[in-house]
């Protein structure tokens, strides 16, 4: 299985997806509403991406990007899935039932970026206290007391 193989496979599945092969792994840019069905395909088809090793978010000031690093312990292949989210009301379907590790990671992203994961079983702040206001890892977060700017 090569980058080209995945690329063809994914194009057949999602004709609108765009690809970036410049990095180490194949990057697939999808629409957030496509994520749930795409994740099911990745997890349950013969591709067997059973290991979600990194789930995070990036704040690009104009939008947020969810980044999922997926790997397979059978084929030892890795793909990176990205989905751009609206910054004002970011929402995406949860995948915590497909990869159990996502439950904690999604709570962390919810906590620090404010991304709402639909159908997550227990979406609460993980690290910060429940009444904390703001999302610290967003670029426009201001904390005049604790943050030192260089």
């Amino acid at each position: 299985m090569t980058k080209e193989y995945f690329r063809e496979y994914f194009t057949a599945l999602l004709p609108t997806a765009s690809f970036d092969e410049s990095g180490e792994w194949l990057n697939v840019q999808i629409q957030p509403e496509q994520w749930r069905s795409f994740a099911l395909e990745l997890r349950q088809s013969e591709l067997n991406f059973n290991y979600l090793f990194c789930l995070t978010c990036i704040d690009w000031k104009t939008h947020l990007t969810m980044v999922y690093h997926l790997s397979s312990t059978v084929h030892r292949q890795t793909v990176v899935i990205k989905a751009n989210l609206n910054r004002d009301s970011p929402e995406i379907e949860t995948v915590s039932d497909l990869w159990r590790t996502a439950e904690f990671h999604e709570r962390e992203v919810y906590d620090l970026f404010g991304v709402k994961f639909l159908n997550h079983p227990d979406l609460r702040r993980l690290i910060l206290e429940d009444d904390f206001s703001g999302y610290p890892l967003r670029k426009d977060f201001e904390d005049p007391i604790n943050m030192i700017k260089l």
Binding site: C54, T56, I58, H69, T101, F104, E108
Partner: peptide, 14 residues
């Protein structure tokens, strides 16, 4: 611009 540490303890604890 952004840095993420995927730490082993976090996943093991989950």
């Amino acid at each position: 611009y952004r840095i993420k540490f995927r730490s082993p303890g976090f996943s093991n604890l989950s």
